[in-house]
């Protein structure tokens, strides 16, 4: 049974994507039913990680489907950004200020996080010897 599923899953990218959608859907339903503040996708990711770690699921079953989804993940964000169409008040000085906060804030977060981690790595590399 396990082998047969593996052979079937390993061949077809669309079947793998369908499998990932099924995991997400099951977890999303569970999260809704229990009213948890965690997104269904994250629960699904943890479930899939647990399945991989336990050896019940092999990497080859999902690797092509997952890279297919992840390669085009940027596209999935676009429709949500169009909510701007319903917020004409943001096309003003306030909107410009919000954009400044977002741009400057994002730069600060990125530079800060990168420097902290880089410093930790250099420190541990020096003390490892």
């Amino acid at each position: 049974m396990l082998r047969k599923t593996g052979i079937l899953m390993g061949r077809n990218r669309w079947l793998q994507i369908a499998g990932l959608i099924a995991i997400w859907w099951a977890c999303e339903t569970l999260v809704r039913a229990l009213a948890l503040p965690i997104p269904g996708g994250v629960v699904g990711m943890i479930v899939l990680l647990a399945l991989l770690a336990s050896g019940r699921v092999r990497m080859a079953w999902f690797s092509r489907g997952s890279s297919g989804l992840l390669d085009h993940m940027l596209l999935f964000f676009v429709p949500a950004t169009m909510a701007l169409l319903d917020h004409p008040e943001l096309f003003s000085l306030t909107g410009l200020k919000v954009l400044v906060v977002i741009c400057a804030g994002t730069l600060i977060v990125m530079v800060g996080t990168a420097l902290v981690i880089e410093a930790c790595f250099r420190w541990s590399a020096r003390h490892a010897r």
Binding site: G41, M45, L52, M59, S63, S66, F76
Partner: peptide, 20 residues
């Protein structure tokens, strides 16, 4: 285009692979 946004869920599940 709502189906595209919905695909963000399965894409999050797919992150289990590179992390693993």
């Amino acid at each position: 285009t709502h189906w595209l946004v919905t695909l963000l869920g399965p894409a999050t599940v797919a992150f289990a692979m590179p992390i693993y």
